[in-house]
Design a protein around this nucleic acid. Structure first.
Lengths: 218, 218
DNA sequence: CGTGTGTCGAGTGTCGGCAATACGATGGTG
DNA sequence: CACCATCGTATTGCCGACACTCGACACACG
């Protein structure tokens, strides 16, 4: 008799799978900024219908990864240096909120410990840019999540895709120094010390540094 | 011969029109929180195909006005008091950024004047709740736009729908005092004076007040 | 009487096709 | 040679139909 409790099946819809497929195709550079994302082409290569791809593309459009060009054709978005700066400014505002809510929470020290643990992922393999990016964004997302504000997390995620294209569109060189554990340590320390204004200043400096790096023309 | 310069035609797609139709149906209370939004029913009453309605619904889902319930069925979202507080906290963070960027800009006084002009709309007809809501949100949106940060505007708009359902779900009574010009005047004055920390404090107080009012159970 | 099974209605998921539109090539014309 | 009408093509907008899943209910069977 079979006692093995059969692994639960993948319940995701085709639309969801198409979404992650197209998103990661963009994020890995398979499609670069400005490239045209044709419904028929994508539907063909993914092996699904146009309608399905369409919904995925609309989702990405709302995510800001894709913009409508002439005749409603969708293309991979290219962020101007100005927009990159704006993006990081908004992130700074959101994460500034996160850090002050975190500090105000009773679980502050526990949260700081979680963040400190997350930092280790940044140290693991500094040469693997992809892993470092995941660790970096993971750290900042965790910061938002620990603040316990679901709307904040949602707003942050709304920016995530644009962050990723921006960072990925740079070569390895730029990203390297920015995603080190050392650069993130002050954030954790600020949480531990619990001084809100100082903590916000740390976040703002962190973001300002990144913004300038990524706003430089390639 | 016709010299009348014929009004330019409506070039919006059916999808866009379906989107605003469904959105305003929700916002005006035609569908209340928890109500089921069936594709077939909507498609029928709007006179369009299911696919078209579907895209509109997905958009609203990303906007946070609609959530997926059992078996993928979409329903109008109901925000908990906790979520309402979170929402206003994020708004405070965003508009805090707006106000400080605005103050830092060289066009500060001109912007303050624009805001002051916008205030008048709030005074026009304090008894018309709908108009007051438009004027209120218009004022805050203008604040973000004047900051000249497109990502900020985008993030703010991402919250807009949820703001509207929250406010509309209250009767006239609650909303009245909150949307007065008098309550918004300190914001303009803070911009004029140009003191960033004070201005942020004003915004935060403004949002905190609104949050507590709308987080009260009905 | 409980349990498992078939059936049915309601809904969403997915698809392929037709229509509309804009763009570019092509060829004709002054 | 410049200009313009025309046609083909690439691409999205929109639709109707079929397939699948789920939950509720009835029903036979032990």
């Amino acid at each position: 008799m079979a006692v093995e409790p059969l692994p639960s099946l993948d319940r995701s819809t085709l639309r969801e799978r198409a979404l992650v497929a197209v998103r990661s195709a963009i994020l890995t550079g398979r499609y670069g900024p400005g490239d045209h994302l044709g419904e028929v082409e994508l539907a063909g290569s993914l092996g699904v219908s146009r309608g399905t791809v369409r919904e995925a593309l609309r989702h990405l459009q709302q995510e800001g990864l894709v913009v409508a060009g002439a005749r409603g054709m969708l293309r991979v978005r290219a962020l101007s240096p100005q927009e990159v700066r704006e993006l990081f400014a908004v992130r700074a505002a959101l994460e500034g909120l996160a850090i002050s809510e975190l500090i105000a929470s009773p679980r502050r020290q526990e949260a700081a410990a979680r963040l400190r643990a997350e930092l280790e992922r940044l140290e693991e393999d500094p040469d693997d840019v992809l892993a470092s990016l995941e660790a970096d964004l993971g750290f900042h997302l965790l910061l938002c999540q620990l603040a316990g504000n679901s709307m904040l997390v949602d707003a942050w995620r709304h920016l995530e895709g644009r962050m990723r294209v921006t960072i990925m569109s740079f070569g390895e060189t730029t990203a390297k120094g920015l995603m080190s554990a050392q650069r993130h340590l002050p954030i954790v320390e600020a949480v531990e010390r619990g001084e809100v204004p100082a903590a916000r200043a740390v976040i703002e400096a962190h973001m300002a540094g990144a913004a300038e790096a990524y706003a430089r023309p390639r």
